[in-house]
Structures are given as structure tokens and as C-alpha cells.
Design a binder for these strands. Sequence first.
RNA 1: GGGUAGGUGCCUGAGUGGUUAAAAGGGCCUGGCUGUAAACCAGGUGCGAGAGCUACGGGGGUUCGAAUCCCUCCCUGCCCA
Length: 419
Amino acid sequence: MNPVDYLRQRGYIHDIVDEEGLKAEFEKGPLTYYIGFDPTGPSLHAGHMATIMLLATLQRFGHRPIALAGGGTAMVGDPTGRTSAREIIRIEDLEENVAGITVQLARYLDFEGGRFDGNPAALLLDNADWLLKLEYIPFLRDIGRHFSVNEMLATETYRNRLEEGGLNFVEFNYRLVQGYDYLHLYRSENCRLQLGGSDQWSNILGGVDLIRRADGGKVYAIVSPLITTQTGEKMGKTGKGLRVWLNPQMFPPYDYYQYWVNTDDAMVETYLKRFTFIRNEEIEELTSVQGEALRGAKRVLAFEATAMAHGVEEAEKAESATRSLFSGGTLPSAGDTDLPTTQIARTEVDGELTLADAFVRADLAKGRGEARRLAQQGGLSVDDEKVSDVNVLFGDILGDRNAVLLRAGKKRFKRVAIV
RNA sequence: GGGUAGGUGCCUGAGUGGUUAAAAGGGCCUGGCUGUAAACCAGGUGCGAGAGCUACGGGGGUUCGAAUCCCUCCCUGCCCA
């Protein structure tokens, strides 16, 4: 199957430059393609999964991915979809971020080569390596002259920024710099395809045009539909606005599983297609049901997504913890060590530690005030027993137990173990 | 460089000397209904057990009392150059 057809079936294609031409290129043999990553965070997050899947998918078809960390472009700042300028990020932070992201990408991409039947090895590059060396006047002369200010001002991104807010010159240059990346990769790696989210369409076309104008080269581009939640948010954040990080230290695998299992009904099929490698027929079968039965499909989605990000073992743990916590019948057991756990020292329990403190320590309340409020609203329980007063000593509640299950609201749990 | 309008809580945005921990909406949280979904309904939403403390760009001042008045610095939009 031609990769383009597969991507279409899976709903990855929103816009494409010369579909037939690209199909023909894929037939000829390994094609080098790239996607840029914005390394402004310390870890990749669920919002990045869309692009990661694109990279991973095409590599499984035997093509050669370049994951491009935007260490240089991050210093310029992409104005796309923003109404105000980005904060300037420190160079040291950027370097650290790039290093962390590299490790994560290795889970999805094969940097050695050959894992999928003779595929080429993936490449990770950082555009800071060439962008920082650019000289201003030669850049203006060789690259700048290919960009029309009129055209740029007409694009949605810049128009928006001109209308509401402001645009400084650094950001105005973002398109040139990103276009230059593509040109650089075209020249140095014979990279012929760039992918990204649909919000990047005009930026990516800037690169395609630049390559044609500067070198007379013919290159391609695909952007995939931006996935937004039911409420119009971009993916990759929890309701609270917390990032769904891929780093297990920053966002536990159990919570990662929960993030996916809580997918909106309407999005389950889209997610299965875009975020797993499950076969089409199987997806069809999973999503052919209505109502509550759809939860089965969500569990598959959550399992696959978690297994990909954190390994099968972690996915299994998350799944079994979920089962014991949500599947009514059996009472979740505080003895189940697979549950996310907070440890509290015996000596503290013997001291003045209150129940409110325990909830705070377990990260289930921001402060004692919040714990009290939650209790008043009937949202707190200890081993499935509602608590109304949190100003009592934790030790008294505990009795002779050395582990309890604290619960805040219906969905948030923490096992607390006394050590 | 000149002129002008601004900078308020997670966000939008009221408020121009005390009754303002700061209207309203959104978001978020809890409860209800459910299917750990969506929609809907109710309550909550700075910290603190409390006295109280901290908050309206930064700093300084006037006043019994300031987000509100004055000075100064920083930042942003718009117009002119």
C-alpha cells in the first residue's frame, strides 16, 4: 500500500502538495522526510503525539525520518495561533529540553535502523546547529529576497497578530527561518517531504516555495488535521490545564492511561486511527457500538497509547489499577501496590499530621483549605468511607492500617502507604 | 523622538478614595444525573482553623483609609515622525 493512501485512510491528511507526485516518490524507494518539534517544554506531551505518529508511521513503511528539534526556531518564536509574543526561552533550558526529547523519541522511532524490515535509521537534528551560524546580510540577500512581505501579511497568522496585539520583527522572521530549515535539509539530507499540523500549512509552504525559488527543487508537504477536543481545546492538556507529559516522572503512566480512557465518545474512532497502529477492521469493530459499550474501545485506545509511551508493563498496571478502582463490584484495595502511591513516614503520622495534611501530601488537594472545602462538599473519602471533618489526626483515622486509599472526587485517587 | 490609550484574579473584563478578596462571563473543582463520555442542574473557586495576612505592572509618596490620587520606572496598543 502506498503510504499516502494509508495516511488518507487514517485521517492524517488535511492538505497535501502534489499527491500523485508524492505517491510516485514513495514508490521509488526510501524517502527522507521531516517534522519540526518545538522544544520549549522539558518533555514531549500528548499534543505532540500527532506528529510523532506521522514520523513513526512512515518509518514503518521503510522511509527515513528526521525529527528536527527547533532549538533555533524556538529562539525566534512561532507567532502561529498566538495573540502575544512568546516569552524568550533561555538557551540552557533549550539545550536541556532537546536532550530530554531525544530520549523520548527513541521509543517511537528507530534510530539504529532495520527494526521494521530494513528501514533506514531515523535522524535527530537540532536546527540551532545551522541557524545560529547564519550571517545576517548573506541571509537577507540569499533567502530574504524570496519572501514577499505582501504575501506574508496576507496570511492569517500575521493578519491576526496585526489586528489584535502586535508583531515584532523577530516573529515576523519566523517563516523565513522555518523555510530555511527545509531548504537546509533538502540540500544536506535530500529531504523531500515535510509534515506537520494544519496550523503549519502556510509556514511549510513557505519552505516549499523557497526551495523552488532558490534551488529549483521539487519537494512535498503534508499537514494533518489539528485535533481539538469537544470543547475546542488543542489536545494534550488535562481539564485543569496540566500538560499530559510523556515523561513518567512528570505525568504518571496511570494518569496517562486515564487521559486516554476519558476520551470523548465522538473522538474515539479518530484517536484510534491517529494514535494507534491497530488495523482498520479492528477499529471499525470496536467503534461500531453505541453508548456505554464504547468504553471498550476507549480501554483499547488507552492501553495502546500507554503501552507505546511507557511500555506494555506499565500499561497493564494502569489497566488493572483502573479496573479495581472503577469497575464497581470489588472494592479497590489499598493493598494493591500497583496503585499510584504516596509514602508518608510513620513518625509523621505519630505527630500532628491531620487528615487534611494527608490529602495535601497525596497531591489530592492544593492546601488544607481546599481539603476542607472538598470534605464539606462530600468529595473526600478514605477507603471508600466519606469524611466530613478533615481536622482530625491522620493517625486516628488510620488505626492499625498501614496503607489507605484516599479519594478526592470520583476520579482522583491516591494510595497512601505508611513507611 | 512627539501625542494618546492602557497594564486588575487562571482568562476575558467591570471597578476611578472607604459598603471591594475585588461585579459579570468563561474556565476549573465538588455534588446530582450517567457510562470514569457529552449535555444539563446546584454549589464552590487567594492563603489561613481563626484573629488575620497577602493581592489590582515595579518602586516611592499623599491620606485615618488607595486597585482607585500624585511622582517615578518598566511594558503594550494606536496615531504622527
